[in-house]
């Protein structure tokens, strides 16, 4: 090995690409150190478990969004699907049904949001940003109509299996965390081991080519939106089971975190595409930011600002990374 090849090798190690690929992961270290020094309680195992419990909802939502982004779209109405799932499941259980019926009903109502999105996007050909933005507005109106001025819907019955979903423990592990692991596994299988997963990658890369290759592209795009909304409804049900009531418009604030998590996840894949594990890591990143800032007693208004800045930087990072491997952002 001569001197030149050593230098090349060293250059590659610190090459921009490596930096861009792992830069966001490395950003964890100073952040955790900062929060740990400012608030020692941040580093305790108890807080860590709590943090994991806090990110469950966000992670599940990011998984749904990941599927849509892989399929070449975007869904700004994730929070509204969460609201639909949460409110309808509580309403169904309040009307006397059991846990299972409430769960399925909530998922179905959440799925309706996805069907609406998918029909606008795949059927009418409206571009996804605008269509899902309109879904946000329309669902605000519908929730207002249902809840008579945004009153919370409180779960009036005691359903042990339902509250176990959000509050239970299996030895020391919170049940929702185990549930998240299960959901991640399911999404891993869906995205990488099924025909559906392959097809939506094709649709996301070039929908016309996918259609010419014999994939029913529009139907698959519609399915990605339905899957995303059902997933977000599931996240809403998990959240509801933890706090025992569903508040209209509670999901809207998740949108930015979900976008941030998914686009952060793109940086760790070699092709800079949305991927399952990246999104989960991104969600944990946002969980750490929220948890740490709350521990440092930063006002929620400033948290909005800090999150906005970090999402902007993450998006810039993702775009720069894509540019470097020669793809259009």
């Amino acid at each position: 090995m001569n001197a030149l090849s050593v230098r090349n090798w060293a250059a590659r190690i610190i090459a921009k690409e490596t930096l861009f690929r792992y830069g966001l992961i490395l950003a964890f270290i100073p952040m955790i150190a900062l929060f740990g020094i400012a608030r020692p309680v941040f580093l305790t195992p108890m807080n860590f478990l709590m943090l994991l419990r806090q990110v469950v909802v966000l992670s599940i939502m990011s998984l749904g969004m990941t599927i849509v982004v892989i399929g070449g779209g975007i869904d700004l109405s994730v929070g509204e699907a969460l609201d639909f799932g949460a409110i309808s499941s509580v309403a169904i259980m309040n009307s006397g049904a059991g846990f299972l019926v409430g769960l399925v009903g909530g998922l179905a109502f959440g799925g309706l949001v996805g069907v609406f999105n998918g029909m606008m996007i795949a059927g009418l050909g409206i571009f996804p940003f605008l269509a899902t933005l309109m879904t946000i507005f329309i669902s605000k109106s519908i929730q207002f109509m249902y809840s008579k001025g945004f009153q919370s819907v409180v779960l009036t019955k005691d359903i042990p299996s339902f509250s176990f979903l959000g509050n239970g423990y299996i030895s020391f592990m919170p049940f929702p965390v185990l549930f998240l692991v299960f959901v991640v596994f399911v999404f891993f299988v869906i995205a990488y081991k099924t025909r559906f997963g392959r097809y939506i990658v094709a649709c996301g890369s070039n929908i016309r080519a996918a259609w010419l290759a014999g994939i029913p592209a529009k139907q698959y795009v519609l399915l990605t939106y339905v899957l995303c909304s059902v997933t977000c409804a599931l996240a809403g049900i998990v959240e509801t089971s933890r706090i025992g009531l569903a508040t209209p418009l509670q999901g809207g604030s998740y949108l930015y975190d979900v976008l941030g998590a998914v686009f952060m996840g793109t940086s760790i894949s070699q092709t800079r595409r949305a991927n399952i594990f990246g999104s989960v890591i991104g969600a944990i990143f946002f969980g750490i930011i929220t948890n740490g800032m709350t521990l440092m007693a930063i006002s929620p208004y400033m948290q909005l600002f800090v999150k906005g800045v970090s999402i902007l930087l993450i998006l810039a990072f993702a775009a720069a990374g894509k540019k470097m491997i020669g793809e259009k952002a």
Binding site: L76, Y256, L259, Y301, M302, Q303, L304, F305, V306, K307, G308, V309, I311, L312, L315
Partner: peptide, 9 residues
């Protein structure tokens, strides 16, 4: 969208 988040903060 991200900037609007910052602005409202």
């Amino acid at each position: 969208l991200a900037l609007s988040y910052m602005c409202s903060g």
